[in-house]
């Protein structure tokens, strides 16, 4: 009788035997779910290029979780959808963990409405602020409260939960203070839920990462962001030429100094920067300019430790920030 239970397990064991044992070098990565698709694509290509000689693991524990693990020395690379915060820098200092900060692509936060919404084509930052600031809670509930010629219909809001880096960045860029937002909206950590919500309700408005808009273009209508020079839609071109502000944001990987002493981690980081342009496009993110990738490469080559992006103000020019002197 025992045989019946043991048999499936024996099968698994046989499978392992058929599968040859691999070399021991391992690159451990963890952190943001936003950066995950890019890192996954790089890891996939990297392992194919190295024929499995170097093993890469990628986890999802959120940007904050990734930094925690990086500062405890548990991982080699942290995925981050926002720059490191000063509290996180302090905890890294306490554990004497140092890191190289590498921007790898842009994400364009997209404000979207239902395709049957005929009245909205563009919005100003002030209008978005009026909808999302904490004071709007319970007060701003109708479209005509934003612009008087918009219809007297309820606004249904959809946005990410407060643990997400997307939420941090949007509130900072629109309301002016990170994590400061109204609370009476439908929140979900799963962006697909937000897409579904906006796609099924003509009065809905929501925001999420660019990739979720790109994949659901037929079900959504992007709102152009007007900063005084006319509405700008989220697109690769508009992020590239720097007009889609303040909602385009750089995303990062942080490579630990201890990790960089291992050749496999350094080789992986170099491979990452080399392939980031093509692979970020493949997973619907927006690549940085060649100049920025070169600057990132220099940081890696010289093992330039520390951050220049911590405290990054949405909309500031990334070329100048990357040239600053990094601090730990």
């Amino acid at each position: 009788m025992k045989k019946e239970i043991i048999r499936p397990f024996t099968l698994c064991l046989i499978l392992f035997v058929l599968h040859d044992a691999q070399a021991g070098s391992l690159v451990k990565i963890d952190g943001s779910s936003t950066v995950y698709p890019v890192t996954e694509a790089v890891a996939e290509e990297f392992q194919a290029a190295k024929k499995g000689a170097i093993r890469v693991t990628v986890g999802i524990s959120g940007t904050g979780g990734g930094f925690k693990k990086l500062c405890r020395g548990e991982i080699d690379i942290a995925n981050a959808s926002r720059p490191i915060k000063s509290e996180e820098m302090t905890s890294c200092r306490e554990e004497s963990v140092q890191y190289v900060e590498l921007p790898i692509a842009y994400d364009a936060l997209t404000v979207a409405v239902n395709p049957n919404n005929t009245w909205v084509t563009s919005m100003t930052v002030d209008e978005l602020k009026k909808i999302w600031e904490p004071a709007a809670q319970g007060a701003i509930t109708k479209w005509n409260q934003i612009r008087s010629d918009w219809p007297d219909k309820p606004i249904k809001l959809y946005g990410p939960g407060s643990d997400s880096g997307t939420f941090d960045y949007f509130t900072e860029a629109i309301v002016g203070k990170a994590k400061s937002s109204r609370g009476d909206y439908t929140a979900s950590e799963d962006d697909n839920i937000l897409v579904q919500g906006v796609a099924s309700d003509v009065n809905a408005l929501g925001y999420f990462g660019f990739a979720y808009y790109e994949e659901n273009k037929t079900k959504l209508k992007a709102v152009a962001i007007d900063t005084g020079k006319g509405g700008v839609l989220p697109s690769r071109q508009n992020v590239d030429n720097g007009t889609y502000i303040p909602l385009s944001r750089p995303i990062f990987i942080y490579v630990s100094k201890q990790g960089l002493t291992k050749p496999e981690v350094r080789v992986f980081a170099e491979f990452y920067l080399k392939s980031a342009a093509s692979l970020s496009t493949a997973v619907k993110y927006i690549p940085l300019s060649a100049v920025l990738y070169e600057a990132a490469h220099r940081r890696l080559d010289q093992s330039l430790l520390g951050t220049t992006f911590s405290g990054y103000k949405p909309g500031s020019k990334i070329e100048t920030v990357i040239a600053e002197k990094p601090r730990l």
């Binding site: 064991l13 035997v17 996954e40 890891a43 093993r55 890469v56 693991t57 990628v58």
Partner: peptide, 23 residues
């Protein structure tokens, strides 16, 4: 406890070609 999301390799084989053959 930290299960990962992307793993493109299998665990080590439980048997090895060298002594003591079980790993």
């Amino acid at each position: 406890i930290g299960a990962l999301t992307f793993i493109a390799f299998l665990p080590h084989a439980p048997f090895s070609s060298q002594f003591p053959f079980v790993s």
